[in-house]
Simulated assay, not measured.
Amino acid sequence: MKEELPEIVRADEWVPLVIRTDYTDDAAWWEVIAELERVVGGREWESPVHLVDDRRWDGVTSDEALVAAARDEELSVVFLADDVTMRSPLRPLLALDLGADDDQDLDPVYYQELIDSPPPREVRVVPDAVHLVHGNLQLANVDFPEFAEEAAADPDGVVRDLVTAPDGPGS
Rank of each mutant, 00 (worst) to 15 (best):
residue 56 R to D: 01
residue 71 R to I: 04
residue 112 Q to R: 10
residue 102 D to F: 09
residue 143 D to Q: 11
residue 39 V to D: 15
residue 135 G to C: 02
residue 24 T to W: 02
residue 111 Y to F: 12
residue 23 Y to S: 07
residue 54 D to M: 01
residue 15 V to H: 10
residue 122 E to D: 15
residue 66 L to G: 01
residue 43 R to D: 08
residue 10 R to D: 08
residue 12 D to F: 00
residue 114 L to E: 09
residue 9 V to C: 06
residue 7 E to N: 10
residue 13 E to M: 05
residue 151 A to R: 05
residue 21 T to S: 14
residue 63 D to V: 05
residue 6 P to D: 00
residue 92 P to S: 09
residue 35 E to D: 14
residue 134 H to W: 04
residue 87 R to H: 12
residue 148 A to W: 00
residue 37 E to K: 13
residue 72 D to C: 03
residue 138 Q to V: 14
residue 66 L to A: 07
residue 74 E to S: 09
residue 38 R to F: 07
residue 113 E to Y: 09
residue 155 P to Y: 05
residue 88 S to N: 15
residue 98 L to T: 01
residue 1 M to T: 12
residue 113 E to R: 14
residue 145 P to E: 02
residue 117 S to E: 15
residue 106 L to E: 15
residue 121 R to D: 12
residue 115 I to T: 12
residue 85 T to R: 03
residue 40 V to H: 14
residue 2 K to E: 10
residue 165 A to W: 08
residue 80 L to K: 09
residue 42 G to Q: 05
residue 11 A to D: 15
residue 138 Q to T: 13
residue 13 E to P: 15
residue 22 D to P: 02
residue 64 E to D: 15
residue 118 P to V: 04
residue 139 L to P: 01
residue 81 A to L: 08
residue 58 D to N: 04
residue 143 D to C: 01
residue 82 D to K: 07
residue 5 L to Q: 04
residue 88 S to A: 14
residue 111 Y to I: 08
residue 12 D to S: 01
residue 10 R to T: 11
residue 6 P to R: 02
residue 44 E to G: 13
residue 100 A to P: 01
residue 161 D to F: 07
residue 147 F to M: 04
residue 44 E to Q: 13
residue 83 D to H: 09
residue 145 P to S: 05
residue 162 L to Q: 13
residue 24 T to E: 15
residue 82 D to Y: 05
residue 34 A to M: 07
residue 112 Q to M: 09
residue 85 T to G: 06
residue 36 L to A: 08
residue 3 E to Q: 11
residue 22 D to A: 09
residue 26 D to F: 06
residue 61 T to F: 02
residue 116 D to Y: 00
residue 167 D to R: 08
residue 86 M to G: 04
residue 117 S to K: 06
residue 144 F to L: 02
residue 18 V to S: 10
residue 147 F to D: 00
residue 49 V to Q: 06
residue 130 V to D: 00
residue 36 L to D: 02
residue 39 V to G: 08
residue 149 E to C: 03
residue 151 A to M: 07
